[in-house]
Write a protein that binds this DNA or RNA. Structure first.
Length: 442
DNA sequence: CTGGTCGTGCTTCGCGTGCT
DNA sequence: AGCACGCGAAGCACGACCAG
């Protein structure tokens, strides 16, 4: 059993950077200003979603103090307790509703982040916030919050493990983003600009390949290409089941709207359906299906390509539509990717209503898809399939690493598992010695 | 069972106000 | 000045429900 004591945050920090309580003047360009929605536990650093900007003058004069790298940004309001690390270099400012915690030098920032994010501390925060409408952890409560502090050696080891796992996840995400960007570039080049390699090997359209006006699209497309409606290409267009949920580890995964994010599946939001009813059996998703978020003004139309299945049998709930192409009519990989590029158009189906909106399936079936000659579809598949495989491996690894991290940390904190055992478990998941990985990451 | 629609409540947001 | 705190609205998700 390791030594541990609980110490109040005010005894652990050098300074708290606090710019709450007033509204920072924003401008159109300049230094990114993040809000609380950018602080998420799925990433160690803040994301840059819906950010605003401030100008240099405001940066120099408005703030009481600025964040430094390795500070921890802590959200006080909305969802109190969410926290992230400040990266190096610091590429943004943070204003309302959060504070920066600068822990004393001997406290490993990754250890502190792990502690703050732990179930134990998150639960304590949950039980101590106030606010009938908006949850709010008062600063006076925050500074009195007691954190478990183990001996320095153990702290550093736990920090290292948290760092390695988190960085590996970040790295995998970055690799995946690059891989997908490559696919997008090729797709645009071939199927939007029509500069696929022509018969002479030169870019088709740029080197004068023959174009034909298409009545349906009202623009020119390469000669020999076709335009077909979605319903002429698909065999299956259906929403999922109304599941009865269970929290046991039985039944099959049911994906909901939350799982459809950034053109892919976020399996961490899955729930489970406890009886594999007949209606679920014929609504199991398959690799290369496209899932469409089918309700909600702001979420309708989000699409995802099924790149991998977490279990053999996975279904979706009644707010997600499964779209499946007929392989005889179109290359299903090409089809899947093409439909992803239609997200904007599908989102447009949510227009014109102030209340609830639902996916209009006749509109969906009516979407026109450009159909290149079969060999180009196959060429795209040959290019994109290896990307799908690599992306899937990384996503699977991230899923496992995140689960492992969340499972391990409380046990490490309690001394129920040793650092040495942990290294071995992490190593197994990473396929690389964890201690070596620590060095590699740094 | 299919193919949806409806009502509701939770979450998150911007933009402050007013007390100490 | 600094901080606690909340309004109003929009976003979001989901279970209940319904007609054929």
């Amino acid at each position: 059993m390791t030594n541990r004591e609980y110490l109040e945050i005010e005894k652990l920090v050098d300074v708290i950077i606090d710019n709450r309580g007033k509204t920072v003047p924003t401008s159109e360009f300049g230094i990114p200003l993040i809000a609380t929605n950018c602080i998420k536990h799925s990433s160690i650093y803040p994301t840059f979603e819906n950010i605003r900007f401030i100008d240099k003058n405001v940066y120099d004069t408005w703030f009481r103090a600025h964040l430094e790298s390795n500070d921890i940004i802590f959200v006080n309001k909305g969802t109190p307790g969410r926290c992230c690390l400040v990266p190096d270099p610091v590429s943004f400012v943070a204003a309302q509703d959060m504070v920066g915690l600068r822990f004393k030098k001997h406290l490993n920032p990754y250890y502190m982040l792990a502690v703050l994010r732990s179930k134990e501390i998150q639960t304590t925060i949950e039980n101590n916030h106030v606010g009938l409408v908006i949850a709010h952890l008062r600063k006076q409560e925050l500074v009195k919050l007691k954190l478990p502090i183990l001996d320095e050696h153990t702290r550093n080891k736990i920090g290292d493990i948290y760092e390695v796992i988190s960085n590996k996840i970040e790295l995998n995400n970055k690799i995946n983003a690059k891989l997908e960007a490559t696919a997008k570039m090729l797709y645009d080049y071939w199927f939007v600009q029509f500069d696929f390699p022509g018969a002479d090997g030169k870019p088709y359209k740029s080197s004068g390949g023959e174009m034909v006006y298409n009545e349906v699209l009202k623009r020119e497309i390469p000669k020999g290409w076709d335009v077909k409606k979605l319903n002429a290409l698909t065999s299956f267009l259906s929403r999922g089941i109304s599941p009865k949920y269970t929290y046991e580890n039985k039944g099959i995964p049911v994906l909901n709207q939350k799982c459809i994010r950034e053109y892919g599946l976020k399996y961490q939001f899955q729930r489970r359906h406890d009886n594999v009813a007949k209606n679920a059996v014929n609504r199991l998703i398959k690799k290369y299906d496209v899932l469409v978020n089918s309700t909600g003004v702001g979420t309708l139309g989000r699409v995802a390509l099924v790149r991998w299945l977490i279990e053999n049998e996975v279904t979706v709930d009644s707010h997600v539509t499964i779209v499946r192409a007929i392989p005889e009519n179109i290359n299903i990989v090409f089809f899947g990717y093409s439909l992803l590029t239609k997200q904007r158009e599908i989102e447009g189906f949510a227009n014109g209503s102030t209340g609830q909106v639902e996916l209009n399936r006749s509109q969906l079936s009516d979407i026109n898809l450009l159909i290149p000659q079969a060999n180009f579809q196959t060429n795209f598949e040959e290019f994109y399939n290896p990307i799908i495989e690599k992306v899937s491996i990384n996503e699977k690894q991230n899923y496992e690493l995140a689960s492992l991290r969340d499972w391990l940390l409380p046990m490490l904190m309690n001394g129920q598992v040793t650092v040495k055992d942990t290294y071995e478990m992490v190593e197994e998941k990473l396929g690389m010695a964890a201690e070596q990985e620590v060095k590699y990451v740094r």
